[in-house]
Nucleic acid binder design. Structure first.
Length: 227
DNA sequence: CCAAAGATGCGCT
DNA sequence: GCGCATCTTTGGG
């Protein structure tokens, strides 16, 4: 389990390193798992962040110790963040791929997650799109503001794990849904280039998207753009 | 009231 | 698989 020390570091470093980690959540006696393919960093000192809007009761988790869960209602549902080092800073868990075990356990995991997050008209989503979005991830793991907002991760019920997987290539891109005047240009969205069909929106497939302009390959050690 | 750190179906390729 | 219009719910002014 990633502990408080993991989160008590620079927000950009935490956001980068969270890509590829596994979010584990126990529900009805079954461990559900999803590997993060997409995160976004938000800092109180820039205008896109909720931290920059100031400390209110609903946002206080961003001021709580690193590794505290900050949840908020986005347009389409509940969204999950973790606080990091620095008052008002955090990382949004933006997309994932489900991880299923073999056999009977895997069947139970599939049934639970698809049941929690069915397609609108009923029926199943394609597996690679089940957690492809910040609210889809929360829905398919049964994560709500009421239950988890303001709490720390918990090895008995909800935690993040490093299972050795490393995204390759690691990509960076501007964050989604940010208005131009609110620091939209900052390339603080991090993606697993090997799982782009499971991200909210593939930054490489946008019309005219160019490396070095709309997206970058990042060296996972240094965090620098690869040249 | 209304902007907001989204999701969806639909038409097209 | 892509772009777009449309729908959604809530916190905060």
């Amino acid at each position: 389990m990633l502990d408080a020390d993991f989160f008590d570091r620079d927000t950009l470093l935490v956001a980068r390193e969270l890509v590829g980690k596994v979010l584990c959540r126990k529900l009805q006696g079954v461990w559900l798992k999803a590997r993060l393919v997409e995160t976004e960093a938000y800092m109180a000192r820039e205008k896109a962040s909720h931290g920059s809007l100031g400390l209110t009761p609903s946002r206080k988790a961003l001021w709580a110790p690193p590794g505290t869960i900050y949840m908020y209602w986005s347009r389409a549902g509940d969204s999950m963040n973790t606080s990091t080092r620095g008052a008002g800073n955090g990382v949004l868990l933006k997309g994932a791929v489900p991880v299923f075990d073999e056999g009977e356990l895997g069947r139970a995991q599939r049934a639970l997650m698809h049941g929690l997050n069915p397609r609108r008209g009923g029926g199943r989503r394609p597996e690679h799109r089940l957690c492809a979005g910040q609210t889809l991830l929360c829905r398919s793991l049964g994560l709500t503001i009421a239950e988890w907002g303001g709490r720390p991760f918990d090895r008995e019920a909800l935690y993040l794990q490093d299972d050795g997987y490393r995204p390759a290539p690691l990509l960076a891109a501007p964050r989604l849904g940010i208005h131009p005047e609110r620091d939209a240009h900052l390339p603080w969205r991090f993606l697993d280039g090997g799982n782009l069909r499971s991200v909210t929106k593939n930054p490489l497939s946008a019309r005219g998207a160019r490396e070095g302009v709309d997206w970058w390959v990042i060296d996972p050690q240094s965090g620098e753009v690869r040249r």
